[in-house]
Amino acid sequence: MSLIEAKGIVVTFAIRKGLKKLPFNAVDNVDLEIEQGMIVGLLGESGSGKTTLGKVTLDLVKPTKGIVKFMGKDIRKMYKEDYRKYRLNAQYVPQDPYASLHPFKTTKDILMDIIKYHKLVHSDKEALELVSDTMIKVGLNPPEKYLNKYPFQLSGGERQRVSIARALLLKPMYIVADEPVTMLDASLKGAIVSTLKNAIQAMRTSLLFITHEITLLQYFGSQTKVLVMYLGRVVEQAPLGELLQNPLHPYTQALISAIPVADPKARASRKLLLRGSPPSPLSKPPGCPLSDRCPFVTEKCRKEEVVLKAISSKHLVACHLY
């Protein structure tokens, strides 16, 4: 049984243009399965629906269609006890460390409050120990140095570590990390991702790592399951190693060819460019969502919907070429 199972998720938003409401599917019929202790990478550009999908699995966004199951039970039809268990076991590390920490609360307030609210321990001393342990785990060492600081006194990296500590504090079974290092300096990114990885592996926690940088996923190993999203659809799904070696979908190929390479000769040979401007969920073409930008486009692509098909047991792709 999977820890998190999302089936047929559709999320419809509407944006207002003048007096008209234009509906569009931010997430369009997506399945996602995460086993206990597993790391899943969710790759896509902004507007691909990856953040919305992550929020759906956290019950922060209600899907228009589809169900989310936690340990086999539909989260929308759970008994109170079960929902509470799900709630405390599904945690979130959002993208912006500046907007995700309450500006008027110190690190100590933010972390101690969680323990006190859920009455996890009996004394303040125990609570402080738990907080300190977690802080050390995420690299806020020594904890005393950070406990009484307000978010504005912390660096971006330190803030993100506090944000991770907050997610880890309840020892959850599932964490969604939404672009946790995007707003940080390049030199810090690796360290924070490693911290996150070590902490969750020690607790056998599952992780949904949402990113637009395929290179960051390499920290989790080549066996990491990766889903590539484009305009609300999953276009390809494969273990990271396989995906890098043998990308099937033209969009994935384009993403991989965009990885900076040090060797200028290699660069030219790998180049694959998509035409047109970056996608907007409002102007999704009929048929394959990539049909307006794909270099291999055929008549069929513009007319027929594509579905995800299995090329091998672990490699799925949604493209009429295969």
């Binding site: 599904a90 945690q91 995700s100 409050d113 969680i114 309840l170």
Partner: peptide, 23 residues
């Protein structure tokens, strides 16, 4: 985002309204 996080932490509506938002 800190309100999203407060929800996943399992804080109730009253706690979010009168502690997080009000503060």
């Amino acid at each position: 985002e800190f309100i999203d996080v407060a929800k996943t932490i399992g804080y109730g509506s009253w706690k979010i309204m009168f502690d997080e938002v009000l503060r």
